[in-house]
């Protein structure tokens, strides 16, 4: 870690060997969440306290008495990541400890049941990091739709039925909601873009105040694709504009990644069982959503 300590920016070459989330965890093969967590922890390091609400990570990260975490870890409930980490962070501040308190919630725990506590903590500008690993449905309970599930996707509560084919509503733009909180840092990231991912983790580690870090987390089980394709699908999500990488400081977008060649959304959904039933009209509707988002974020038509 010498070079890094000398001020060199974190990159794949100097990313530390240290692991703070041990192997032996029980995530499905090909799950993106442990990729996110392992590599994020390499940068956040030893002086980190981790909170997870109810989610896959809670379960695959440890079943008593076994725990994958090598740093202080706690769990309370589902809907209160924002407030739970607020309490821990304030207590550690009062104790004079220099510790990064990080909550890692899924999309259900962020978009839906956890949005109140999250919004409250952000509005108070608590000195914490909130990570949303977004696999676009309630995977821990068996693939039920969430506010993050994209349009058309099949879940066990939005089945591709005889009358209704998958989810009728589009994905909620959570990062934009967080951007509206006027907080020091909002970043979206994808494991497919390693340098960008590492840069963002490193940057947020050194910011004081509320930091919101939102990473797309492809799920082979819930999205129904071959586990080896996790990174490939994450890359296509970015390249199609389904997932946009940016950083925002106090509400202003300071850095945004634009795919060199925008691929049609059809190319992204191909190979994912959750979209298999989609009609051409439905694919068009999804493409319209992507294009609207594109125009809003880049200020130009795609």
């Amino acid at each position: 870690m010498d070079k890094y300590e000398r001020g060199e920016r974190m990159n794949l070459k100097n990313l530390p060997d240290d692991e703070y989330f041990t192997p032996g965890h029980t995530a499905c093969p090909g799950c993106a969440a442990p990729i996110i967590v392992r590599n994020m922890m390499k940068i956040l390091g030893k002086d980190t306290v981790i909170y997870t609400p109810a989610n896959c990570l809670l379960v695959f990260g440890g079943t008593y008495p076994y725990i994958a975490w090598k740093v202080p870890y706690f769990h309370e409930a589902f809907e209160n990541t924002g407030s739970s980490i607020s309490g821990a962070a304030r207590a550690l501040k009062k104790q004079g400890k220099k510790v990064t308190v990080v909550g890692i919630a899924g999309d259900g725990g962020t978009y839906d049941i956890g949005i109140q506590a999250l919004s409250g903590a952000a509005e108070r500008n608590e000195d914490v990091i909130y990570v949303c690993y977004d696999n676009e449905a309630y995977m821990n309970t068996g693939i039920q739709r969430s506010g993050s599930t994209p349009y058309g996707a099949e879940t066990t509560t939005t089945p591709a039925g005889k009358k209704i084919l998958g989810k009728l509503r589009h994905k909620k733009d959570m990062a934009e909601i967080m951007r509206a909180h006027d907080i020091p840092y909002v970043a979206t990231a994808s494991i497919s873009h390693i340098a960008d991912f590492l840069k963002k983790v490193e940057k947020m580690k050194n910011i004081e105040g509320f930091r919101y870090f939102h990473v797309l987390s492809p799920c082979p089980t819930g999205w129904r694709y071959d586990p080896s394709k996790t990174v490939e699908i994450a890359r296509k999500a970015v390249d199609s504009g389904m997932w946009t990488l940016y950083e925002a400081e106090y509400g202003e977008i300071t850095n945004i990644y634009k795919p060199k060649k925008k691929i049609p959304v059809e190319e992204y959904i191909r190979g994912q069982g959750r979209f298999r039933h989609m009609t051409p009209e439905m694919i068009e509707e999804l493409q319209r959503w992507v294009d609207r988002k594109w125009e809003r974020l880049y200020g130009e038509k795609p």
Binding site: P23, G24, G61, I67
Partner: peptide, 11 residues
């Protein structure tokens, strides 16, 4: 058992 012990579980 405890912190960092999941490595006991050979997957």
């Amino acid at each position: 058992v405890g912190i960092g012990s999941f490595s006991e579980n050979k997957t």
